[in-house]
Design a protein around this nucleic acid. Structure first.
Lengths: 206, 206
DNA sequence: GTATAAACAGACCGGTTGTCCTGTTTTGTC
DNA sequence: GACAAAACAGGACAACCGGTCTGTTTATAC
């Protein structure tokens, strides 16, 4: 066993294939994952490079700075996550109120199934980066605004059909997003998704 | 003039006074400030030492590690902030619902007066540190629990006098804390405290 | 007064960080 | 096939980080 030196890669002797889109996607994948799990400042580019199997040159080619990488994660991944888990389901729901209820329960069920709580992707980055850099802040604020507007628009659509006449759409949207964000914050800190359901019950008393 | 060597501090010729409590307090002051403004990972001990006017030896004497310093900030300052701005005012209020309303408006007024939003001290650290270290997480979770319980207890006291019979105290407390936390998160990201008032209005419809 | 511990000063170090730089290889274009 | 640009490799580097270490001064106990 002592004679064994590092096994050379006999297969694939220096045959490179340029795949810029795939490489960019892989970097974004591990960056999104690491930023959520460890945070922006606690994630080193060295770790990301190792996890993605990417060299420094390639990383620098696609994302000149760490900030540029984070901005891409925010605008492409975090915004996408909010769209996927909140905006689309609410739009597709029979009503705003029903959509909100469904999302709360879906997320709570998912968290309980996976056994741990990583928190809301948007809120996680918003807390760490909003005060650090104004470009970060604006990008994150835009996602919050789109989230709220989607809920408010749905509520307005409900009102077009005569329902929910006593409810202020923007107020309902703000309250919903705030409650969800705060509940996720508590769930993350307690590592228990139960508070999500508790807050949903409270919200339904409206 | 050429004969002058480095000007010796003629005043205060090496007269040191040991003030362990004061030095500890100064370190905690700048650490709390920096952790809130820049976050834990973005705050270097070097910056803190410079800001507090403290040498490395003194810092290490009172706080052996950065983690120990953060733990002290959490348990002594963050817990104190929650106690001061939330628990005490709610206890002193005529009712739970009135206390919650008063705190929301007080905080909103303060934020609008100072012109910027730094966010909720507890939530700021909770997001960055909950997943990083379990000791951090437990310490932060305990503060959340105390916050919720104070509100729930106040609601239970109200119910002893025949009021609020249709409200679940724990549910009300969870909803209140979640809404406030989420609203502060949005207010911080948008740098606009208006959403706090918006959420309070929504909450009052219960 | 003397012993002892606490409080503080200040330099030092190994490891890590983000970024930059110089090459090499692949790909697209004519 | 010639050529330019994009894509990628991999090392270099200065700055910085957190922690440790040794030594000195101040306070406390007896």
């Amino acid at each position: 066993m002592s004679g064994e030196i590092a096994a050379r890669p006999r297969t694939a002797r220096k045959k490179r294939i340029n795949d810029p889109e795939g490489m960019r996607r892989r970097v974004l994948d591990v960056a999104e994952e690491s930023f959520q799990a460890r945070g922006y400042h606690a994630s080193s580019l060295g770790d990301l490079m190792a996890a993605a199997g990417v060299t420094g040159g390639a990383l620098h080619h696609h994302f000149p700075t760490k900030k540029a990488l984070a901005l891409a994660v925010i605008e492409e991944r975090v915004a996408g996550a909010v769209e996927e888990t909140w905006i689309a389901p609410v739009r597709a729901a029979p009503s705003a109120r029903e959509g909100v209820r469904a999302v709360f329960e879906t997320v709570a069920a998912e968290l309980e199934h996976q056994g741990y709580v990583r928190g809301c992707p948007l809120n996680n980055l918003a807390h760490e980066l909003s005060l650090a850099d104004d470009e970060f802040r604006v990008a994150l604020a835009r996602i919050f605004a789109g989230w709220r507007q989607a809920i408010a628009d749905k509520m307005r659509a409900d009102q077009q059909t005569g329902r929910e006449e006593g409810t202020d759409p923007d107020r309902f949207a703000a309250l919903t997003v705030a409650t969800y964000s705060g509940a996720m914050s508590m769930a993350k800190t307690a590592q228990d998704a139960g508070v999500l359901r508790e807050c949903l019950r409270g919200l339904e008393r409206l």
